[in-house]
């Protein structure tokens, strides 16, 4: 059971005190060194044959997202259509990994996906944000109900937010317990579970040391993925933060043998940027992580840029915005 693993890693019973000691005992992060390493990874250039593969991989790793107050069933159906058929002019174009929506619209996404849904013979998952996304400012009872609702509505994946207030106040045990509780709420009646992505909202944690601590708390609590951001706070995903979180899952794997995924979300708009993330994944955690089970991009506009680049490779000339569909 997951918490046994956490106990082994922490080396004691799990308490506010032991988790705090554990988190504060993690090695520090030198921001400048981290940022320089990220910058140097960003200078890698990949060859053309790899590029086509990279673009397709990026598409297959995308959680195509709409998270607006103005979201409607129509908007979600449109998003799903895009997810299913990203480029109508090219049937070989892969589908995205998931669509990511608010919990109350999860059932719309499930219905719209139909046979393309992972649960219906397809491969596309429905991810729902929960736990009073994006602020997380609600009681645990509300957050758990929010989660259970989404799971019941057919969400395959839950993107929860941690309680940054509790974290910044130093109540690491509370953050941990909440993740454990949400994980429990992801359980379906048949015993299976929705996958849990834990959003750290790194822009609000501010320091890299905090990001490392929060990453470990989430992994200890059983996160299937650690995710950078809600997309509602700036800065959202950055390459250095993602690198740091990749180091965390790499070290977790070394320590426990368990595989945890990473999802940068927000702010990744160009193929060029996304390729840099792929490079960073491959050189930090390893190529094994270039798989939708272990890495996702939380993005919306990224997809069309990737499609434009794909078309450029296919046709040899630059494409234009009117040649890709909007969702």
């Amino acid at each position: 059971m997951t918490l046994d693993l956490a106990r082994t890693v922490v080396g004691s019973e799990l308490s506010e005190r032991s988790l705090r000691a554990f988190a504060l005992g993690l090695p520090g992060v030198d921001a400048i060194g981290l940022e320089q390493r990220a910058a140097s990874l960003a200078t890698r250039s990949i060859k053309t044959t790899s590029k086509r593969w990279a673009l397709d991989t990026i598409i297959s790793l995308i959680d195509l997202t709409t998270l607006e107050g103005a979201d409607t069933p129509g908007k979600v159906r449109s998003l799903v259509a895009k997810a299913v058929l990203p480029d109508p002019s090219d049937p070989t174009c892969p589908q995205v990994a998931a669509v990511c929506v608010y919990g109350d619209l999860a059932h719309v996404a499930v219905e719209a996906l139909g046979s393309n849904h992972a649960g219906g013979g397809g491969t596309i998952n429905v991810a729902a944000v929960a736990t009073a996304f994006p602020s997380g400012r609600a009681s645990l009872r509300v957050k758990l109900a929010d989660t259970a609702d989404a799971v019941e509505a057919g969400a395959d994946e839950i993107d929860m937010v941690i309680d940054r207030g509790a974290f910044l106040a130093g109540r690491y045990g509370e953050v941990f317990d909440e993740i454990v509780a949400v994980k429990e709420a992801c359980r379906r009646s048949d015993g299976s579970s929705a996958h849990l992505k834990v959003i750290l909202e790194t822009g609000e944690l501010a320091t890299y040391d905090n990001v490392r601590r929060a990453s470990w708390l989430a992994m200890l609590a059983g996160a299937d993925f650690i995710k950078t951001s809600t997309g509602k706070v700036s800065p959202a995903a950055t390459l250095p933060v993602t690198l740091l979180m990749l180091e965390a899952v790499r070290d977790w794997h070394r320590l426990t043998g368990d595989l945890v995924g990473v999802k940068p979300a927000g702010g990744i708009r160009s193929s060029k940027d996304a390729v840099r993330y792929l490079v960073t994944v491959a050189e930090t955690a390893g190529e094994r992580w270039l798989d939708p089970r272990l890495f996702r991009f939380g993005a919306s506009s990224l997809l069309n840029d990737v499609l434009l680049q794909r078309q450029k490779i296919e046709t040899g000339h630059y494409s234009g915005a009117d040649y890709v569909t909007i969702d």
Binding site: R44, S45, I46, K47, T49, S50, W53, A54, T57, L278, A282, E283, E287, L290
Partner: peptide, 10 residues
Amino acid sequence: MTFLDYAPAP
């Protein structure tokens, strides 16, 4: 082919 066979990008 692995993804990390980047180059040659001379």
